[in-house]
Computed example of a mutant assay.
Amino acid sequence: MSAQSQTEVQDVTQPPAGLTLALQPINAGASLRDQAYAMLRQAIADADIYQSREEVRLDERVLSEALGVSRTPIREAMTLLEQEGFLRTVPRRGIYIMRKTKREIVEMIQVWAALESMAARLATQNATDEEIGKLRHMFDSFRDGTPAEHIEEYSDANIVFHQSIVQLSKSQVIMDQIKNIFVHVRAIRKMTISQSDRASRSIVDHLRIIEALEHRDTELAERLVRQHSLDLAEYVEKNCDFLD
């Protein structure tokens, strides 16, 4: 690795500005490996891994201290995460959080569009009126202003909205297939929601999707959800050169 590329690599103890992994000591009882895996996976999902071009290296010692366990379950958990595509090993350098290229992100969003649109279709058939009604209440706090005025809160609501559509499908296969894609798509949604007035356009799309679900309009709900994500893929393709 060149001297320049070495300077672009950051240790988890010195992350890019604002990037931290939120970790707490795990409890004894259940498998330490499984608990370490779950906490590391969630911490990676919650981190803004695309806010900087710099890579984040995970330090076993730091993770061991943060989680309050030995390095063995940490190594086992990281092996599982590497197999799932969340981490990558660089020989003689260490283990890094996996970042995708722009092309890979676009393709992942396209796959997300296919899975989430099918989830919306199934939601019109499987979700109760009460479950669908909860989607509308997610945006109650944004009725008196624009999403851009509360962008952090809206960004969180946006992520929960898309998760909820998948859950309302009540298809375990879709939920299992989409969970690994979600980490990267979530990070990109969070980064781009504040750009080019996307938040205001997003809430309009969301309300149309909710209406289609409420009316049990299967074809419309599926089409609106698919197009909503494909619009994000197109935006990333045209505007997110920082991913390369």
Score class of each variant (00 low, 15 high):
118 M>W: 03
9 V>Q: 13
67 L>E: 09
112 W>G: 02
239 N>E: 10
241 D>N: 13
120 A>T: 08
207 L>Y: 03
64 S>Q: 12
233 A>I: 02
185 V>D: 00
205 D>L: 00
99 R>G: 06
238 K>H: 08
37 Y>L: 13
86 F>Y: 14
79 T>P: 00
36 A>C: 15
23 L>D: 14
112 W>C: 01
178 I>F: 00
23 L>P: 12
182 F>A: 13
214 E>R: 14
4 Q>V: 13
76 E>S: 08
172 Q>H: 10
120 A>Y: 02
92 R>D: 06
160 V>M: 04
182 F>G: 10
239 N>T: 11
152 E>T: 14
172 Q>W: 02
204 V>M: 01
205 D>R: 07
173 V>S: 14
53 R>M: 03
213 L>N: 11
40 L>I: 11
183 V>C: 06
88 R>P: 00
171 S>M: 03
175 M>H: 10
40 L>R: 12
190 K>N: 08
128 T>Q: 07
57 R>H: 01
237 E>V: 02
4 Q>T: 11
3 A>H: 11
103 R>I: 09
39 M>L: 15
121 R>K: 14
79 T>K: 10
141 S>M: 13
6 Q>G: 03
2 S>H: 06
126 N>A: 08
194 S>Q: 13
129 D>M: 07
185 V>C: 05
42 Q>S: 12
59 D>N: 15
60 E>F: 11
202 S>G: 06
14 Q>K: 12
13 T>Q: 06
132 I>V: 15
159 I>E: 04
5 S>W: 02
173 V>I: 15
68 G>A: 10
13 T>N: 07
79 T>N: 04
244 D>S: 11
74 I>W: 01
44 I>M: 10
21 L>C: 09
137 H>R: 14
170 K>A: 06
82 E>M: 06
201 R>T: 07
73 P>D: 03
112 W>R: 13
181 I>D: 06
93 R>I: 06
62 V>I: 04
179 K>M: 02
136 R>K: 15
110 Q>L: 05
102 K>E: 09
208 R>P: 00
117 S>V: 05
122 L>W: 04
212 A>P: 01
139 F>H: 12
237 E>I: 02
92 R>A: 09
14 Q>Y: 04
199 A>D: 11
103 R>W: 02
11 D>G: 02
179 K>A: 09
135 L>C: 07
46 D>H: 00
81 L>D: 09
130 E>D: 13
195 Q>Y: 07
6 Q>P: 00
179 K>Q: 14
30 A>I: 12
242 F>I: 08
76 E>I: 01
194 S>P: 01
226 R>T: 03
39 M>G: 09
95 I>V: 15
106 V>R: 02
67 L>F: 08
161 F>N: 03
71 R>S: 13
41 R>Q: 12
